[in-house]
């Protein structure tokens, strides 16, 4: 394939910049919390944003293999979120039984 020309190249660069800033913002939410589920969805957001970053980067270097990387990253993020959700529910259930 030929090199990218003007508008698309700028669009890719601007998209990468926006997504990088968004990842920084997601990390701010990850640090500030305040609760554990807040942090979990912040990690979820970071995974989504990284998927978008990889997809945009695949346009920049014209290598479509990065789409597969995004798919695997999405799978891992989904499993991580589900595992955290089960974990939080189990903590709550154990607290209930010990209080009674």
């Amino acid at each position: 394939m030929e090199d990218l020309d003007g508008f698309l190249l700028w669009a890719v660069f601007i998209s990468l910049a926006i997504i990088s800033l968004a990842i920084l913002g997601a990390f701010v939410r990850l640090i500030r919390g305040p609760s554990l589920p807040d942090r979990v969805i912040a990690i979820d957001l970071v995974a989504y944003l990284t998927m978008g970053f990889l997809a945009t980067y695949s346009v920049l270097i014209q290598e479509e293999t990065y789409i597969d990387v995004a798919l695997v990253l999405g799978l891992l993020a989904f499993l991580g979120t589900v595992a955290f959700a089960r974990y939080i529910e189990r903590i709550h259930a154990e607290e209930e039984t010990t209080e009674l």
């Binding site: 990218l4 020309d5 508008f7 698309l8 700028w10 669009a11 890719v12 601007i14 998209s15 926006i18 997504i19 800033l21 968004a22 990842i23 913002g25 997601a26 701010v28 939410r29 609760s35 589920p37 807040d38 969805i41 912040a42 957001l45 989504y48 944003l49 978008g52 945009t56 346009v59």
Partner: peptide, 29 residues
């Protein structure tokens, strides 16, 4: 084709920025 792809990429990045702004600004979990 490249113009359409560029607009779609910019739109997607804008929505992701909206998601992050929502994560930072909205009041509860």
């Amino acid at each position: 084709t490249e113009t359409i792809a560029a607009l779609l990429l910019l739109g997607g990045a804008a929505f992701m920025m909206v998601a992050t702004i929502g994560a930072l600004r909205l009041p509860d979990f």
